[in-house]
């Protein structure tokens, strides 16, 4: 009787089959396999446990694991679909699929709405919008007086809040985003078109000794 040896490929916990992920997303099987390479690189940067932690996500975006950024935090929280504090491989692929050039504009509009709906309440309030503008100013070199910030928020609400109830709901957001397509510019990553040809960056951690 012969023995058959089946080569077992070791995958990180939370790994999902590439065929399933390709079926559910805009990626092909080969593209999902390429994304696994990228996922492996990021998830072994600091914690080496096969999950992407917040610090690892921040490091690849800013080359600094300690830099906190309001909007990077929002993106991380949405990628972390299960809400368990880490991004698993399946969550990584499903979330990146939203940014694929072939994904419909409607899906991108919905995802962008979820980024800006800070309280997950199903609408964007004036105070939330102001909070986001202030967060943006905080991370940039742009300084605007409080009056100017109020004016910007007021004018945006005038354009987007069609029923004047002081809330931007998903339908109003959809209308507004369609009239202002530049808002969705960062919702499409051209890199994802040629992902099987890509050589992913080698992220290198610089550990600094803090006294």
């Amino acid at each position: 009787m012969g023995c058959a040896f089946v080569k077992q490929v070791k995958h990180a916990p939370g790994y999902e089959e590439s065929t399933l992920l390709a079926y559910e997303t805009a990626f092909t099987i080969k593209e999902v396999e390429s994304l696994y390479e990228l996922f492996e690189k990021i998830s072994h940067l600091i914690f080496n446990d096969g999950f992407i932690h917040r610090e690892e996500f921040q490091f690849v975006l800013f080359k600094d694991s300690n830099k906190r950024n309001f909007f990077a935090d929002r993106i991380f929280d949405l990628f972390d679909i299960k809400g368990n504090g880490v991004i698993e491989f399946g969550e990584f692929v499903r979330s990146l699929s939203i940014f694929h050039p072939y994904t419909s504009q409607d899906e991108k509009i919905t995802f962008a709405f979820r980024i800006y709906d800070l309280k997950n309440a199903g609408f964007i309030e004036r105070e939330e919008l102001k909070e986001m503008v202030l967060a943006l100013l905080n991370e940039s070199d742009l300084f605007l007086t409080d009056d100017v910030v109020e004016t910007i928020v007021d004018q945006t609400f005038k354009q987007a809040d069609l029923n004047c109830d002081e809330k931007i709901d998903p339908m109003e957001w959809k209308e507004f985003a369609k009239k202002n397509p530049s808002l969705l510019k960062n919702m499409t990553l051209p890199y994802l078109m040629d992902i099987t040809m890509a050589e992913f960056p080698n992220f290198v951690m610089n550990f600094e000794v803090v006294d």
């Binding site: 990228l38 975006l61 950024n69 993106i75 800006y116 742009l142 910007i152 354009q159 510019k185």
Partner: peptide
């Protein structure tokens, strides 16, 4: 465009934290 005429979402969308291209840039 004067800042006071800017659309708040357009301003927000310039955040580096919303630019996932860095995941792929060498």
């Amino acid at each position: 465009e004067r800042p006071s005429q800017m659309n708040a979402f357009e301003l927000i969308s310039t955040s580096q934290g919303l630019n996932l291209g860095s995941l792929f840039e060498k």
